[in-house]
Design a protein around this nucleic acid. Structure first.
Lengths: 336, 336
DNA sequence: TTGTAAGCGTTATCAC
DNA sequence: GTGATAACGCTTACAA
């Protein structure tokens, strides 16, 4: 159980009959090494099972080849029943893996968590920090950026000082497409269950709803949820109480949309005959709801991959645009 | 964007007018430092914004204070629509966080992925490795353990050489409770949709089904799925074709159970009147299926926390039992 | 092309 | 109690 003695560069060098520097060159793929020597070194490496000590390497190179992904643990969305964060993790992870970088996952939320992340990043444990979601006006991204640490956010940060690059999806465009679809299919009393108003995703989806409805001269009807199924249920009940004659509802997340579907059934309304429902996310599960959910697809995996790609550019010192916005798409199924 | 010059121990020492050794003592909470000096050092630390360099520290302490969690990326369960891995991640993450350790997430699957994990661990980048799931007779846990690296597995490994400690749930017990519940409520033609037979979870749940049914002298009817909803749909269709008179089905995962529910509705069978259905997992979503799903709850979050706890013990050199088995519990809702 | 040697920023072992 | 000083294992000028 005790850590077995591990061979060092020195040991490999002795065995191969060369200097440490030469071994280092071979291990790091330098081309300026004679073929015969390279072979001898590689043989010694294999025989000894040598693997470079990462700490020693980092100490001199100032790089760790790993990237932190920060999840706001407080968010209801995290791991409850929501596949947003898992999909982000997967996307970021795959792209980093392709670049041979490691993913360090950190959850924050508490004040203490914030400090841990800051210390961790400043201690040089990672080459950069990716924020999977920003709550309110979180100062952490800015703090780290000011410290000279590469930072990128998923979703436009609500703080501007200093500006931190971000990747986001076209919330407003997707919502507009959804609401226009409802209008085009004859709906006139279109309500919405909005997302939390301390997150850009919640804010922008509501803004898209409001703008499109105003442009069409139709009345607005808004309740707010927190992206959970439970809040979709209560939100839908509230809407029905406020306006029993509503004939459509745009729901700012698929999970809330499923809640809305349940509340509508409970109230004896047919979907889509009496009330049309459109969600936002396009999770796998929405293909299987009853009825299958019409929804705005956002490319979450692609978002994760893009986040990672931008981070890699940042690390290598390349310039990147302050924002990348990915398209959304209306997926029409049976609920609207 | 360039990394700002970071203060070192040396700088703090100069500012506080003491030696590096003393600063190190203060930073590491040694008690053998005079109060006045400690204060002076702490002031200097704050003023300079000093944070210890992790690489330098690891180099000498041989510890990294981080732990790797390995996900088998090939598994259909990972991030598809399944909340098993997210729940494990969350459990492990929270417990490690409480111990001030970091979680490094790695996905494997490909041959290359295996090598990456091995190199990474051997390079001393982490203090230990937690496997979130084992596929078939994966040699990696044993390989790492032989290298002297602390290893623990979620689910009993199918290889025994060398024995690697694990945490698992009582699959057989949970399944037995489920099947006995079906028998007690008058079901006699009880089928099963089993999980993949290259994973211990799949194997043991099937074994539990078989054993209980044999003990009761009832016939067996088995098809195999891969834990996905889609395989639950096709599995249920196959069962119905094989024995149209079946009156119950135990399904080895909630996701497959939802698929089964859909296939049953499609076939015009009422649940539970015509066919009783019991799942395994107790995901949040199963409370909301139609009808709400009777299922065997396995404490996934607790499993993640236990994995982390055992790993922490391993790292500190404590003895741990070769296995910890957590209880499962039958949750009766409306589907059976 | 290869070797020598100087760090990288800590911690830990000694004396004092 | 505090301070020198020697590791820790590697990369990288600079020499040869």
């Amino acid at each position: 159980m005790t850590t077995r003695e591990r061979p060092t560069l020195e040991a490999v060098a002795r065995r191969a009959g060369v200097s440490r520097a030469t071994v280092s060159r071979v291990v790091n793929g330098s081309t300026t090494v004679a073929a015969t020597i390279r072979e001898a070194v590689n043989r010694a490496v294999d025989e000894l099972g040598y693997v470079p000590n990462q700490a020693a390497r980092s100490l001199v190179t100032q790089r760790t080849d790993s990237v932190a992904l920060i999840l706001p643990e407080t968010a209801n969305r995290v791991f409850s029943d929501d596949l947003f964060f898992p999909a982000i993790i997967r996307g970021v992870g795959m792209e980093l893996e392709a670049a041979d970088k490691q993913l360090v996952l950190m959850m924050t939320g508490s004040e203490a968590g914030h400090h841990r992340v800051e210390r961790y990043a400043v201690a040089g444990h990672v080459d950069g920090v990716v924020f999977a979601s920003i709550h309110g006006a979180d100062p952490l991204p800015g703090t780290l950026a000011r410290r000279g640490i590469p930072v990128i956010c998923s979703g436009r940060p609500m703080t501007a000082e200093p500006p931190v690059p971000y990747v986001d999806v076209d919330h407003a465009g997707g919502v507009a497409a959804a609401v226009r679809h409802l209008i085009a299919t004859g709906r006139r009393r279109i309500a919405t269950i909005a997302g939390p108003q301390d997150m850009v995703a919640g804010i922008e989806r509501l803004a898209g709803y409001t703008a499109t409805l105003r442009a069409a001269g139709l009345p607005e009807l808004v309740v707010t949820g927190d992206f959970t199924r439970e809040s979709g249920i209560t939100g839908m009940r509230a809407l029905l109480a406020r306006d029993p004659s509503l004939d459509a509802v745009f729901v700012a997340s698929d999970l809330m949309a499923h809640g809305a579907l349940m509340a509508l059934r409970e109230a004896g309304r047919e979907v889509p005959a009496d009330v049309a429902v459109i969600g936002f996310d396009d999770f796998e599960i929405s293909r299987y709801s009853d009825p299958p959910l019409t929804t705005v697809r956002q490319p979450i995996g692609e978002m994760g991959r893009t986040l990672a790609r931008q981070m890699l550019l940042l690390i290598t010192g390349d310039e990147i645009p302050e924002s990348v916005v990915l398209p959304t798409e209306l997926i029409v199924r049976d609920s609207a």
